[in-house]
Simulated scan of single mutants.
Amino acid sequence: MKILAAAILGASLLCTAPAVVDAGQLIAKVDVSEQTMRVYRDGKQIHKWRVSTARKGKVTPRGSWRAKTLSRHHKSSLYNNAPMPYSIFYRGNYAIHGTNQISRLGRPASAGCIRLHPTNAAKLFAMTQQVGLRNMKVVVQN
């Protein structure tokens, strides 16, 4: 009888306990052929931005990854300390980041990273901080 009472009490506590707040899912979906990024939060598109992906002779990898690290004031160790503000690294040295070459957005221009307008990069960076790295997904497709 004591076991049954304990089981009922435990079940009632589970039913009345407050739910854990879900930070939500953030997806940055890049279409290389369109040179655009669509940002989805909890399945709903909330932004569409122009990007620059890899120029001729370079590669922006296709696939799906979770965000790995954030670096607000990053500088490239591979390309003469080029500024990479609001970097969201998702695969090795590949990141989504702001660029000072705004006029080149909308066409291939990078060495492989996904470049955004700095204002949009800052927004995506802040949203990623809000939901957490494990809830931010990067999808790159043709």
Rank of each mutant, 00 (worst) to 15 (best):
M1R: 05
K2D: 13
S110I: 01
V138I: 15
H117M: 01
C113W: 01
I3C: 00
V139P: 03
L4V: 12
R134S: 15
K123V: 15
R104Q: 09
T53E: 03
R66K: 15
K29H: 15
A6L: 01
G43F: 13
A54M: 03
V139M: 04
Y94E: 05
R134N: 13
V51L: 02
A11D: 01
A126L: 01
A23K: 09
T53C: 02
A82K: 03
L14R: 00
M1G: 15
N142L: 00
G112N: 04
E34V: 01
P118G: 10
S87W: 07
R50K: 13
S87I: 10
Y40H: 04
F89A: 05
Q35T: 05
L4N: 10
I102N: 04
M84A: 07
L133Y: 15
V139I: 12
L133R: 03
P108Q: 02
G98D: 08
N135E: 04
A28K: 02
R66H: 15
K2N: 09
S64Q: 15
Q101F: 07
V138Y: 12
V39K: 06
L124M: 10
Q130P: 12
L13H: 09
G98V: 04
K75H: 12
N100H: 13
S87H: 09
T36F: 05
L4G: 06
I3H: 10
V139L: 02
I3G: 03
A5V: 11
A122C: 01
S110E: 10
A54L: 07
P83A: 02
T60M: 02
Q35Y: 11
S33G: 05
K2W: 06
N81G: 11
I8L: 05
F89H: 12
W49R: 00
V140Q: 05
T119P: 00
M1T: 11
G57T: 13
A126F: 09
G10H: 03
Y40Q: 02
L105F: 06
I114K: 07
D22V: 11
L133S: 11
C15V: 10
I46Q: 05
I96N: 02
V32H: 03
D42M: 05
R62P: 09
Y79D: 03
G106T: 07
R66I: 05
A109S: 12
R66L: 08
R38G: 11
H97C: 03
M84H: 06
V20G: 13
V51I: 14
T128A: 07
D22E: 13
A19K: 12
A109R: 06
T53G: 06
M1D: 10
M136E: 12
R91K: 15
L133W: 15
T99N: 04
T60R: 01
P18D: 03
C113G: 04
I114R: 09
K29Q: 13
L105D: 10
T53L: 00
N142V: 00
M37V: 07
L105A: 08
W65G: 09
G43H: 15
Y94R: 01
L124D: 13
R38A: 10
E34Q: 13
A5D: 10
S33W: 12
I46T: 13
M84K: 00
R55C: 00
G112Q: 06
I8A: 12
Y40K: 04
S71K: 11
S76I: 07
V51G: 03
